[in-house]
Design a protein around this nucleic acid. Sequence first.
DNA 1: GTTGAAAAAATATTGAG
DNA 2: CTCAATATTTTTTCAAC
Lengths: 149, 149
Amino acid sequence: MELDETDRAILRILQADARTPFSEIARRIDMSSATVHDRVGRLEDAGVIEGYHAKVDPRKVGYGTSALVGLRVEQGREENALERLREIDGVTEVHLTTGEWDVMLRVYAEDTDALRDLMFDEVAEMEGFARSQTMVILGTDFEDPSLPV
Amino acid sequence: MELDETDRAILRILQADARTPFSEIARRIDMSSATVHDRVGRLEDAGVIEGYHAKVDPRKVGYGTSALVGLRVEQGREENALERLREIDGVTEVHLTTGEWDVMLRVYAEDTDALRDLMFDEVAEMEGFARSQTMVILGTDFEDPSLPV
DNA sequence: GTTGAAAAAATATTGAG
DNA sequence: CTCAATATTTTTTCAAC
């Protein structure tokens, strides 16, 4: 799908605030809301917009700790490991990467104790687990889910 | 702010789909939409809900490559470096971490050439830069922005 | 592709239990 | 805190350019 500047403007607005009324988007980009409605529908159908999600403050719902975890997995056991990782509560991202680690995880836990339990009892016990390194996130300086479009 | 099971149910729904009409949320949790409206407003005011964002498929808007980058920063230069990183186009996350790296970045780039340029011309040229390691994301097995609440 | 206008649906507000 | 009823606004549809 080819995106023109109007599509990009709509994407910028919806990335910043997914609940902006079409009528206001229309006003800002100087088109009718029927057009905005039409375009958003096409962006959704084309898979450019994958979804709309409320961003919840992890601390406010009991997740005091977050970490990035590098994982080494035994050769040939990757499939099994990935399947297991997906199911662990608090694991929100599983990426296959080049470099020192085969897999990088993003995990959330209540506190450092809970993170330790998650790592020792769930991740390290997993079939095919070789070794891991946990990078505890001490603070997040910047996190904007918006891609520049 | 204290969250009860009703609040959590609303959060689960809005994390999965931020544009679910209040009327449907109300139907699903068996309450009136006025109550849902009231609760969502309080969750927003309390900062539990930080915002609503459209999730855009990076590939569909020209970002073929993504990476996690570990950074070492010279002591005392952290502030300056963080400020600079925030401004680089394509950098969507900047975390301070324990372990091998001081800072972990999430970056998006058009392709590996653009990633190289971003790393060599922007990141490595930054004041206070010591060294870095780029973990190119070959694939994302799982990525769900929803926190279990 | 875009539009204005009508119809349908949703959200915001109010007042009371 | 919750609700029903009302007022307001938005979404959706559609004939027409």
